[in-house]
Design a protein around this nucleic acid. Structure first.
Lengths: 127, 127
DNA sequence: CAGGATCCACCAGGATACTG
DNA sequence: CAGTATCCTGGTGGATCCTG
């Protein structure tokens, strides 16, 4: 069981956890957004994101390709050239992601304000 | 640096990572969705989600409260009664989250199909 | 240039026990 | 009932080195 019953998620094949687990990890969304404007090479993505290690980038791209969200194309040249493009499925995902990002940008200040106003409950908070 | 320049995220205060980091963790979305229909007590949330430990639930609720997404109300009774409700901010977040969940449900099969069709690239993939 | 392989540090998160 | 405190483990992700 991975999600409560009320959300049509009854066992191991839970779409929410499956997808959210991906978009939740450190790099997936950033990579997706990097590719949104158009095709990029491996190195170009690294340049755009800057603080991603090649290990994590390669790993993230692999999974995105595996999930059919990104297509990978190898040009048999020396030095090698590999570029990545969003698939239709990938592009369709950008909408909900965009909504999330928009929310984040719009309400970030509210969240930060709420955090600033935070007072830790004394455990035995009464009334 | 947490996100690439092209997304108006220039240093430590990156809304995307800040918010996505939250929704990405194991329980936040589930708790949020649990509270969507209405106010619930601590134990009720546990009952709904089932496989969350009280530690993780308490922790998740704390952060949600801290971020102003959930309000916590303590009734000074014995046994103690504490209930949680989405704030307006929290409710406003449910839209983008709903969009993500909808996408997940709709395209989950595509993703699973893509995974099934997966062939690992031979490293020295040439053409 | 694109990435695989390896080693390692950190922490999210589970189990358990205790408290108001 | 609604937590907090402590201990412990597995996986995520960073650094580094190596290859086609």
């Amino acid at each position: 069981m991975t999600l409560h019953k009320s959300t049509a998620c009854d066992a191991d094949h839970c779409p929410i956890r499956d997808v959210l687990g991906h978009i939740g990890d450190r790099w997936t969304v950033l990579v997706l957004k990097a590719l949104e404007p158009g095709t990029l090479r491996f190195g170009e993505i690294r340049h755009v994101i800057e603080d991603v290690s090649q290990r994590m980038l390669a790993q993230t791209l692999r999974r995105l390709e595996q999930d059919g969200l990104v297509s990978r194309r190898v040009h048999p040249s020396i030095p090698p050239r590999v570029d990545y493009t969003l698939t239709d499925l990938g592009r369709s995902l950008m909408e909900p992601i965009g909504a999330m990002v928009d929310w984040a940008v719009t309400h970030h200040e509210d969240v930060r304000a709420a955090r600033a106003a935070w007072v830790p409950p004394p455990s035995h908070t009464a009334l």
